[in-house]
Design a protein around this nucleic acid. Structure first.
Length: 631
DNA sequence: CATTTTAAT
DNA sequence: CTGCATTAAAATG
């Protein structure tokens, strides 16, 4: 905690106190999304927010932020009104439901795992510093118009990731801006990951510079305490890569993530796997510290009187109605300090959309816009080729010169990926938008493809899901036939179709063994600040078409549904395993090089098991079947 | 109720 | 004052 350096005074401290007062929430908002990140403790935030406010005042971006802030204020007004209305009612039912939910969650609390969240310190800046050690004592940032990261020296001036470059310059005029060298960061990240893999071969990359590990096994096998394991791992990372990382160690991923921030940079923090310790840790924890609670939810919560996770409890009877089902459940989990205890490689998650977007000088000419769409379509085609998929829904995104964002989507008659198709099917929605908004002026255009169908490795693995013929009954028959497609060709030689029916289905997930071989470039680096309530990091690897799959146990090797009977299921797996061994041998000889350093564990792809959040099949199905297969 | 759009992260 | 992906809730019909 050093004293804050004295950055040059901004052009003007606000002269007008009323103005000051009215825009409090906006100013706070303008501080940006990464406020909770480390390195800011010694900074005078109110000074910083003044500078940001004055630097951006009057810009189109600012005006839009102002509008958004007004809208949020209205939304909060409605929430408060609803709250007042609710409080006049008898809420014992909701209270009971909440208490029951809490009891149920608490009973299923798992304190047996040691989950670690590893976070590289100012990663891009640290990598740049390796090449240019002379920058050790100068504040610098990486990124162009927007800072992707900055070193800790720059943070002392209030600079941080996500901030506009010119704003950062106001805060710190000496700030040096370096251009991005993405390849460099990716290869450095790989070096770090090689070390991580020694401690948990199934570690999960959450972004280029963040990862989750489950070190329970490592601790057991080496008779070591978690904190010693992590200290050793961090030392090893530093020794091998010359970059420093921080880590959090706790019973689940949500807690570990919070903990990795506590002793940043180059530190670690252990939260004991003890219910009381966790509960009191959460009690005083500001909501914003939780991954998934950002500027907006923080403010909404704060306005109803919830500042810390402990404050959630006395409001439990209101939260569902005020914020909706999922957010309610998420908040209760926060109160209890519960989170994910499983960690799984990112490659095992199924991608749901692929898209591209770009910002450009304002543009309104119809011809130019079509050219831009054409170009965007071509970019998307490249990305889809890389992802090896096609899609059935196109989403056009535009940002007007006012920074207002609009999206329009259309369902294509067939799965598409070629630039011509992408362009031709999205052109009508662009044209319609132009009619809707006369003189439409854009600063950004994006195209995204969803409802994906994989075209991966046609001969390497069955990429159609085979499932036994079943009598279609009742209401879901029509629904199912619509999402199902008879397929022209059987691509996979080793299994004859016979009486089986084919459906295009869950293609990526069948190729995790292939993925393991390809690995490397598909690493799927996600942004650290993406969230979803309920889970903590990556998306749910679950499928559409859930209903009827419940009655079948899917084989983790071939993914075909099996009779839900233990004996025959195990027999089938044995058969599949031997078949798999043969296939792998054949493949290795032909083309694939197995990954040298990170050895992969046996295929354990237990999808459709422990399914559904709303169905009550949760806890029962999962452990049972895992045991069945591994036990 | 299914689909689309917006907003948050 | 980016770009990519995911999720939840609200709006729409």
């Amino acid at each position: 905690m050093e004293p804050r350096p004295n950055p040059d005074e901004p052009d003007g401290i606000p002269p007008n106190l009323e103005d000051h007062h009215q825009h409090d929430s906006l100013k706070y908002h303008l501080l940006g999304p990464s406020l909770t990140k480390a390195g800011q403790d010694s900074v005078d935030q109110s000074k910083v927010s003044e500078v940001i406010y004055n630097a951006s005042k009057g810009s189109k971006f600012f005006n839009r932020e102002e509008v958004k802030d007004k809208i949020l204020t209205q939304k909060i007004e409605q929430i408060l009104e609803k709250k007042r209305r609710l409080e006049k009612l008898d809420l014992t039912r909701e209270l009971r439901a909440a208490d029951q939910f809490i009891a149920q969650l608490d009973a299923s609390r798992d304190l047996t795992q040691y989950i670690v969240h590893v976070d590289c310190d100012a990663f891009y800046a640290a990598v740049e510093l390796l090449d240019r050690p002379e920058l050790k004592d100068v504040p610098f940032a990486v990124g162009g118009g927007v800072l992707t990261t900055c070193n800790y020296l720059a943070r002392k001036y209030g600079c941080r990731s996500g901030m506009a470059g010119f704003v950062a310059k106001k805060l710190c005029p000496q700030l040096l801006l370096l251009p991005l060298n993405s390849d460099k960061y990716t290869s450095k990240a790989q070096e770090v990951r090689q070390v991580l893999a020694q401690y948990d071969p199934r570690f999960q990359s959450a972004s280029i510079d963040e990862a989750y590990l489950n070190i329970t096994e490592y601790c057991c096998e080496n008779r070591m305490e978690p904190q010693d394991v992590v200290q050793q791992m961090r030392d090893e990372i530093h020794e091998r890569t010359r970059i420093t990382v921080s880590a959090g160690i706790a019973a689940n991923a949500k807690l570990a993530k919070i903990c990795s921030n506590m002793n940043k940079p180059n530190g670690q923090y252990v939260l004991l796997n003890d219910r009381n310790v966790i509960m009191s840790f959460m009690r005083s924890l500001p909501t914003r510290k939780v991954n998934g609670i950002g500027r907006v939810l923080e403010r909404e919560l704060q306005e109803i009187g919830v500042k810390t996770c402990g404050d959630i409890f006395p409001h439990r009877q209101l939260l569902r109605q005020l914020f909706g089902e999922k957010t309610y459940e998420f908040l209760i989990m926060c109160y209890l300090g519960l989170g994910r205890t499983e960690v799984q490689p990112a490659e095992e998650y199924e991608r749901k959309s692929v898209g591209t977007e770009s910002t450009f000088r304002e543009m309104s000419d119809s011809k130019e816009l079509r050219a831009k769409l054409r170009w965007t379509a071509e970019e998307l085609e490249k990305d889809m080729r890389k992802a090896e998929c096609k899609g059935r829904t196109l989403v056009l995104k535009v940002k007007l010169h006012t920074y207002e964002v609009l999206t329009r989507q259309t369902v294509t008659p067939r799965a598409v990926s070629a630039a011509d198709d992408l362009y031709n099917f999205s052109l009508p929605i662009l044209t319609k938008l132009e009619l809707e908004i006369p003189g439409m002026k854009l600063r950004l255009m994006g195209l995204r493809c969803t409802n994906l169908i994989s075209t991966k490795k046609p001969n390497a693995r069955a990429f159609f899901r085979l499932r036994p013929l079943r009598v279609e009954t009742g209401s879901n028959a029509s629904e199912r036939s619509s999402s199902r497609e008879t397929v022209e060709a059987v691509r996979e030689g080793s299994i004859s179709p016979r009486e089986l029916e084919y459906s295009t289905y869950d293609n990526n997930s069948h190729s995790d063994l292939d993925d393991a071989n390809i690995d490397g470039h598909q690493a799927l680096d996600r942004d650290s600040n993406y969230h979803h309530h309920g889970k903590d990091v990556a998306p749910n690897p679950k499928r559409a078409l859930t209903e009827e799959t419940e009655e079948w146990w899917d084989c983790p090797i071939c993914s075909r549904p099996q009779q839900p009977d233990e004996r025959s299921f195990n027999e089938h797996i044995d058969l599949c395993l031997s078949r798999q061994t043969i296939r792998d041998t054949v493949q290795q000889n032909s083309m694939d090089k197995p990954t040298p350093t990170t050895h992969r564990p046996p295929a354990k792809r237990l999808k459709h098991m422990g399914e559904t959040k709303r169905g009550k099949t949760t806890a029962s199905a999962d452990p049972r079947q895992k045991k069945l297969f591994f036990g």
